[in-house]
């Protein structure tokens, strides 16, 4: 089983998923803290018709085009949600459910059209984008993940102080000269792009987990933003590696779901054992230290 670790396919897939999960963990933490975790879910589902439109336009499963289609639909979905919640009494909760299911419905309709149409060939790969099948990732898929993740992480590091103050205290951040609109836009674009490049690895339905779970884990272990980010990044990476390994060694374990399961186990453990988890707060409460 050790030779799995050095096999070419495994390495390609593992590099891709680990870097993706690391970047998603860090960027996603911001939305978890802002209480906007499920926007990523809606965007994730909404990218699916974008994939198929892109495929219909070019006729082949070409990584960059499909990712572009996903990004465009992700942006479209986000702004539709924004407009609906801003100018009607519809709540974010409902708007997310509506957009998520409508766009996914469009994707399903297009998928049935493409698959029933003799003009299109090579359509069996479409399902990989719904459930994620990292085993079929190509070199270009991994390159794209690396490019998107590295750019996102660099931007995040560069604007770290801005982002931190903006998320914690938006009006104060404005008063010291932070461009809050730009920060918001940057976080959003990073989220959408990471979702788009990660679809093939994890799938449209489950990708939101990569954005939420690491941040949640980080928040269960630390009081400090930089520490939360680091823990989030690494728990994402560890889950991705474990999930990829399991899916390579055991038949029938799709990569995406395996990563999500590994991550879920980490969440559960952190809820119990984390320094802010159940056991710890329970002990503190018994000693009467909690303020």
């Amino acid at each position: 089983m050790i030779d799995v670790l050095t096999s070419y396919t495994f390495l390609i897939v593992a590099i891709g998923t680990v870097i993706l999960a690391f970047a998603c963990g860090i960027v996603g933490t911001v939305s978890v803290i802002k209480g906007q975790s499920l926007i990523g879910d809606a965007i994730g589902h909404a990218t699916f018709p974008g994939i198929i439109f892109a495929f219909m336009l070019v006729g082949v499963m070409e990584t960059y085009t499909l990712a572009l289609g996903a990004v465009i639909f992700g942006i479209f979905a986000f702004f539709t949600i924004q407009i609906i919640t801003d100018s009607s009494k519809v709540t974010l909760d409902s708007a997310l459910a509506l957009i998520l299911s409508s766009f996914f419905g469009l994707g399903m309709a297009l998928k049935s059209y493409v698959q029933g149409h003799p003009g299109f060939s090579g359509t069996q790969g479409i399902d990989d984008y719904i459930f994620g099948q990292a085993a079929y990732m190509l070199r270009t898929d991994v390159y794209l993940i690396i490019i998107a993740s590295v750019i996102s992480l660099l931007l995040f590091m560069l604007f770290y102080s801005h982002i931190k103050i903006y998320v914690f205290d938006p009006i104060f951040s404005k008063s010291v000269g932070v461009n809050t609109g730009l920060m918001n836009f940057m976080i959003l674009s990073m989220t959408i792009v990471l979702i788009a490049v990660g679809l093939k690895a994890v799938g449209a339905i489950l990708i939101v987990n990569l954005l939420i779970a690491p941040g949640v884990i980080g928040l269960l272990w630390s009081n400090r933003f930089p520490m939360v980010l680091i823990i989030a990044g690494f728990s994402g990476a560890v889950s991705a590696f474990t999930g990829t390994y399991v899916s390579t060694v055991y038949a029938g374990f799709a990569t995406g779901p395996s990563i999500i399961l590994a991550m879920s186990i980490l969440v559960l453990l952190s809820m119990v054992f984390g320094s802010k988890g159940l056991l710890h707060t329970h002990r503190k409460r018994n000693q009467g230290v909690v303020s």
């Binding site: 906007q36 939420i212 799709a254 399961l261 809820m271």
Partner: peptide, 30 residues
Amino acid sequence: TRLIKQDAAIGIVFTALFALAIILVSRYAD
């Protein structure tokens, strides 16, 4: 438990159970 906020809790629970279901299907229901 007040450890995790509502939106994050929803996102984590559904992805975990859904992932489990997919693995069960692809592993045993082929």
